[in-house]
Simulated assay, not measured.
Amino acid sequence: MTVLKAVMAGGRSPDGLREIDVYELPAACTGEVTGIYFDGDVDQEFLVEQRPLLDSFVTRGGRVLVNGHVQRLFLDGLTRWRKLEFRNPPDLALTRVSEHPVWAGTDPKSFLYNTGRSGPVPFAELERIGVAGFYGRGCYLDLPEGARIVHTIGRTAAPIDYDYRLGAGRVLVHGGNDLLQFATAARGTDGMRAQIVRWLAGS
């Protein structure tokens, strides 16, 4: 089994993710590939051209994790990201609606704030010095049929993370900065990276 991480500039990535330049995707998406992780700044115009390939990959049983603000519908079931109106941290706080193996063992509060500090920071201190909104500042309101919402954001409870079945495969959509950025020991979420890889591998 192989898991691809498709980015704008190829390189090496540990922990079972084979990092490729997104423009290598048609050649790299061979029979042993089980999952594809798309960075938030991936070229969506190019992916629209690859839609038949991606639809076929998922319907046959593959898994795709999409990060960022979808504006070009490059896969069956995707909808467009919408910017959220917000004024303060409660407008950006996450609520977990359903459990998902990618976020297993994590606390939604751990994703709300960023600071310039290294190492763990107590939540009360994060509320005082942290900046909210790095996890996401938008939502997906028009979900595909049968979609499962994982997290909602803010007081409006708008969906930010959801997944859905497409044929024999699954698609997971995160409407914010790349999830791998949030898999850190300082947040107590370092196990999330392995969980992402396992989900993409179909485990």
Score class of each variant (00 low, 15 high):
199 W>G: 02
162 Y>S: 11
11 G>T: 04
69 H>V: 06
56 S>V: 05
93 A>D: 09
68 G>C: 06
13 S>Y: 10
139 C>Q: 02
102 V>A: 08
164 Y>M: 09
83 K>D: 12
60 R>I: 10
181 Q>A: 11
44 Q>G: 07
192 M>R: 06
103 W>D: 04
192 M>W: 12
103 W>I: 14
176 G>F: 05
75 L>K: 04
86 F>I: 08
90 P>K: 10
168 A>T: 12
140 Y>S: 08
179 L>F: 04
69 H>K: 15
150 V>M: 06
145 E>S: 00
20 I>V: 09
79 T>C: 05
73 L>I: 14
33 V>K: 01
67 N>K: 02
66 V>T: 03
118 S>I: 03
176 G>Y: 02
51 R>A: 11
104 A>T: 14
197 V>K: 13
203 S>F: 14
185 A>Q: 03
181 Q>G: 06
79 T>L: 01
100 H>F: 10
196 I>M: 01
146 G>K: 07
139 C>W: 11
128 R>N: 11
183 A>H: 08
197 V>H: 04
126 L>S: 00
124 A>C: 13
144 P>I: 03
157 A>D: 13
139 C>K: 07
53 L>N: 03
1 M>A: 05
172 L>F: 04
42 V>D: 00
94 L>E: 02
45 E>Y: 02
52 P>G: 12
198 R>Y: 00
82 R>P: 12
32 E>Q: 14
15 D>Q: 08
89 P>F: 00
138 G>A: 02
138 G>K: 02
53 L>V: 09
6 A>V: 08
65 L>H: 03
106 T>I: 12
180 L>A: 05
121 V>E: 05
162 Y>W: 07
23 Y>N: 02
65 L>D: 05
7 V>E: 06
202 G>D: 10
54 L>W: 06
104 A>D: 14
134 F>C: 08
86 F>K: 10
137 R>Q: 15
160 I>F: 06
70 V>H: 09
196 I>V: 09
138 G>E: 01
76 D>C: 15
59 T>W: 04
28 A>G: 10
142 D>H: 14
183 A>N: 02
187 R>N: 04
67 N>A: 13
165 R>M: 15
112 L>S: 01
58 V>S: 03
122 P>E: 13
201 A>M: 10
17 L>T: 09
79 T>I: 13
119 G>P: 02
53 L>D: 03
29 C>P: 01
135 Y>M: 01
185 A>I: 14
133 G>F: 05
99 E>V: 11
83 K>M: 13
13 S>L: 08
191 G>V: 06
